[in-house]
Amino acid sequence: MEEKILITGANGQLGSVLANALIERYGSNSIIATDLKHKIKFKCYFEVLDATDYDGIQTLVRKYSITQIYHMAAILSATGEKRPHLTWDVNMETLFNVLEVSRLNNIKKVFFPSSIAVYGVDVPKTNAPQNFATTPNTVYGISKVAGELWANYYFNRYGLDVRSIRYPGVIGYQSLPGGGTTDYAVEIYHKAINQEPYECFLNKTTTLPMIYMEDAIRATIELMEAPLKNLSVRTSYNVAGLSFNPEELASSIKEILPEFQISYKPDFRQDIANSWPESIDDSKARKDWNWKPKYNLKKISADMIKNLQLHYNYKTQKS
């Protein structure tokens, strides 16, 4: 049976790259990208969709005979603290809609993105365990914990195959930052390429788990394609790439762009970062579906700078 894959939040930082990866893997006719607006020209079907609209999701599921849903629509951590009620409403209502539509229409698989934001201040800072109390102090983190529990419930109660990853901070050149606490690690490269100093909103020694976009997308697809019998985690898998702090990241950039300058002015996002672990234990993912990252910090900086230089040179030539 041909797969028909629906993606919500396809304009987003992760969703946009995931959509293109799925198009390349399954073909243009198998992918239906959706979002609130048609901002990106995908080489596949695109439908304007508000994921808070239950009937809208169901209409598309039936129109295209959808077999899988990647639910990427969400409000992220830093933005969420500014608008907590909206964040809770959007993040939870969209997930409920996807889970219910999937249950009632016999969807084979659903992907739900979780986050290291599920952890709270009590979590061990080093190698945060897969199975540890999740007591977040952000609305975004609370919504992700709730989402993990609902994913587990729908699997156990209805047999709906919901799969999930707790993403660390995601670094990529393909899109602009989307309002997350770890987005400094994307913003910093744009400043460096444009020969501008960067004022970091975290202090220089704040170590956080990160993952390069290519690794994050590969992990997502590998998990979704893993045999059901191999999976032992029905909440959300820890997935690690690497850990570093802003000072270490700036040093890796200076190895390529020695004139780059950085300063530090922590804001409310520092408190969010302080509640998260410095590294996470992803041994379950490695055992269950052979997860392994490919990118270290040196490779990330080289690839980010190369691709962003091409991007900005192209924009200059077009203007």
Results as ranks from 00 to 15, higher is better:
S164K: 03
T206Q: 15
V48E: 10
N29S: 15
K315H: 10
S283R: 14
A240C: 08
P209D: 11
Y312E: 05
N290S: 08
L36M: 04
E247S: 12
V61C: 06
L202R: 11
Y158D: 09
K287H: 04
T59K: 14
N131Y: 13
P293Q: 01
A73C: 07
M72G: 05
K63A: 05
V17N: 00
A216W: 04
F155W: 14
V233L: 04
F112I: 08
N245Q: 03
Y45E: 13
F155I: 01
T134Q: 14
F111M: 09
N274H: 11
S263A: 13
W88H: 13
F260N: 08
V61P: 03
P266V: 09
P136T: 05
H190V: 10
K306E: 15
N20F: 01
Q317M: 13
M213L: 12
Q174L: 02
I272M: 10
D161C: 08
A185L: 12
K108Q: 07
N105G: 08
P113D: 06
I107P: 09
Y173V: 11
L49G: 03
N230S: 02
M224G: 06
S30W: 00
E3N: 14
V90Y: 09
S319Y: 12
N97F: 01
P258V: 12
S143H: 01
S301Y: 04
A185C: 14
L60Y: 02
V98Y: 03
E214F: 04
I142G: 07
G159A: 00
S251G: 12
N307T: 01
N230D: 02
I217M: 04
I171N: 06
K294S: 13
F260V: 11
Y153H: 15
T126M: 14
I300G: 00
P277L: 13
G178Q: 07
L104K: 15
G141L: 04
N91M: 08
R25I: 13
Y119F: 15
D303S: 09
R83V: 15
F260Y: 10
A302Y: 03
A219L: 05
D35H: 01
F132Q: 15
E247T: 08
I66P: 04
G178A: 12
A73P: 06
V139Q: 09
L223E: 08
I75H: 06
A33Q: 00
T181E: 02
C200F: 04
S28E: 15
V162S: 05
W150G: 03
F112K: 05
S243P: 06
T34C: 02
G147D: 09
E247N: 10
Y26H: 13
G169S: 13
A78T: 11
M1Q: 08
Y184T: 12
T34F: 02
L14W: 01
T34D: 01
T207L: 09
N274E: 15
R234A: 02
G178Y: 03
L95N: 05
K63E: 05
L86E: 15
